[in-house]
Design a protein around this nucleic acid. Structure first.
Length: 401
DNA sequence: TCTGGGGTCCTAGGACCC
DNA sequence: TCTGGGGTCCTAGGACCC
């Protein structure tokens, strides 16, 4: 039996949610109606566009591009700060409303959900359900969604990406050739800008061109990835809506520094503070990591990473920091550093931990210390307790001001 | 005042083992 | 004394997504 899958996508999520929150707080101006973006702090060198209003989009402003460029395209651009607390609030409201319609719902990102409606239609037409969801979200929350309806996740997602905002589209197999194949191949999910030149060389410009190529040609050129995008172009996707809570496969934090750091001790202080964040999150998931990975981005945007598998999985801040410090020392060659990141991989639960034959129970002691610190953070806020010497990222030396 | 942050998955080469 | 081949694990890098 054919499945019925819905993909619900919030239009201009961060900007819409910011607009709704402002209106709720008594502001008169709806920032969705002016040239506006949500962006990071340029002074902190985080000045990229995170979301844009329809007018900003019309002026050629793109998500991910530097605000500096965006402003050149539109001198009177209004820029608003992101507030993830607000975003999660609206994201949860949406998720709860959608959950009324099916148990098989997957949170694909903060502003997107897949819904498997196959056994939840209750004699209604998928389109009518989509209409109702669309209307209820608008009335209850004040923002709009696009909804894609199809027989699998890939096509539902492609459908929700058609004309925006506040629209419902279907993309059934019979509609592939008219609705999807004429689109540029770059519109296909998972086809990014690095693949485009290679596809171009194979005379593939549209999704239809890709679909009509021999599958083997794609596999020869791109391997596993080639098989996947060829199947996507042909509307083939058998993946299930994952409605059970998934455990993370890795956890990491990174930070772009307010200026390029050359002082290794200063870099280590930042590394400690992001290691604390990462291990705190790791412990919140009650997980243990066996691999530590440190990444740096140098001033010229070159990225380097080193990783190390440990003898025994741990979630101790101290042990993971010691490992990450070693990795940083291997990486740091004296070139000024723009970004530092840490990530832990190889996650497992306590009962799955392989104890190293050399294990000396150093975990046990550290676990108690971390538990005390976590408790204080939980009760009084994450920043209520910090390690001595922890770097304040707001602080910039006088000469650089 | 040019270029975020958090993820997942894949590949390729080297080490090591039988 | 002229040099295998299959498998697994580990590491570094990179593509893609929102």
């Amino acid at each position: 039996m054919e499945r019925i899958i819905l993909h619900v996508d919030v239009n201009n999520a961060f900007l819409s949610w910011t607009a709704v929150e402002r209106l709720k707080n008594g502001e008169k101006l709806d920032i969705r109606t002016i040239p506006a973006i949500i962006g990071g702090d340029e002074k902190q060198r985080k000045g990229v566009v995170l979301a844009k209003s329809p007018i900003a989009k019309k002026l050629g402003i793109q998500t991910g591009e530097p605000i500096y460029f965006a402003r050149k395209k539109c001198p009177n651009l209004q820029i608003y700060k992101s507030d993830f607390k607000v975003y999660y609030k609206y994201s949860n409201s949406l998720y709860n409303l959608l959950s009324e319609y099916t148990d098989k719902i997957e949170r694909f990102s903060i502003d997107e959900c897949f819904m498997d409606m196959t056994n939840y239609l209750k004699n209604r037409k998928p389109y009518d359900i989509a209409l109702e969801i669309n209307r209820r979200v608008k009335e209850n929350f004040g923002f709009t969604v696009n909804i894609g309806i199809a027989n699998n996740k890939l096509l539902a997602k492609m459908a929700s990406d058609f004309e925006k905002p506040d629209k419902i589209h279907t993309l059934y197999k019979s509609e592939l050739s008219t609705k999807m194949w004429p689109l540029p191949v770059s519109d296909l999910f998972m086809v990014g800008k690095k693949s485009l030149p290679k596809l171009e060389k194979m005379h593939i410009k549209t999704i239809g061109d890709l679909a009509k190529k021999e599958e083997l040609d794609l596999i020869r050129a791109f391997g596993k990835y080639g098989k996947m995008i060829w199947e996507y172009a042909n509307g083939i996707d058998n993946s299930e809506v994952i409605f059970e809570e998934q455990e993370p496969k890795c956890i990491g934090n990174s930070v772009t520094l307010p200026y390029d750091f050359s002082d290794i001790e200063k870099i280590e202080e930042v590394l400690l503070s992001i290691t604390e964040q990462t291990t705190y999150r790791l412990r919140k998931h009650e997980l243990y990591a066996s691999v530590v990975n440190v990444q740096i981005k140098t001033k010229d945007f070159k990225v380097f990473s080193h990783q190390k598998k440990m003898d025994t999985a741990t979630n101790s801040t101290k042990i993971i920091y010691e490992e990450s410090k070693k990795l940083l020392e291997e990486l740091y060659k004296g070139v000024p550093i723009r970004l530092i990141g840490i990530r832990v991989d190889g996650l497992s639960h306590k009962d799955e931990i392989q104890l190293s034959i050399f294990d000396n129970h150093k975990n046990d002691k550290q676990e108690k210390i971390d538990a005390v610190i976590d408790k204080i953070k939980d009760k009084y806020g994450y920043n209520s307790i910090t390690r001595a010497g922890k770097v304040d990222l707001e602080e910039i030396p006088d000469k650089l001001k």
